[in-house]
Amino acid sequence: MSRLKYFVPVIVFLGLAVVLWRGLYLDPKELPSMLIDKPMPEFALTTVDDESVSNADLPDQIFLLNIWGSYCLPCLIEHPTLMRLSEEGEIPVVGVNYRDRKDLAQDWLVDNGNPFSFSILDESGRFGIDLGVYGAPETYLVDANGVIRFRHVSVLDETVWQEEFVPAIAELRAGSGQ
């Protein structure tokens, strides 16, 4: 026992080293969202196509809320994935056109294709603040009751879809029988 205490500093060191080593591989850009398990913030805005939208217009099933902008290059990288998900009917995708200009947003959708059921126009970024957005692209997973369940920051490609969203959705479905 008395011998053992000489190893205490080594054990403490190893413990600390493991914690800090893991810390090296955390992405400091991925902040935890404060809105997990909270309802979507209330909104009454217009879409990119000038139609008024509010919470009542959101899909009443599990859907993705994707924050995008025509200026956003990573959005182009994830765009094919969003197109596939939407075209194959895997999950509805609602857009939030964040800090953009309406005409540029419309052009972008024409040029690249429109995967969104509709895109909420948030030129001022005010709605983004309520969501805790800090830059496009970000993607939220919202359940059938309009409660935010998961957020992914930056590009949502096929790998991220398979590894993060598919399990999260499966868990939601298992939990609620949807």
């Binding site: 970024g125 603040i129 830059g135």
Partner: peptide, 22 residues
């Protein structure tokens, strides 16, 4: 929240601009 090592005063980021306005 975007340019993580500056405060809102010093940041040119879009979200910082919005937060200052708020």
């Amino acid at each position: 929240p975007m340019c993580q090592n500056t405060n809102l005063t010093g940041s040119t980021g879009g979200v910082a601009e919005d937060l200052r306005r708020e």
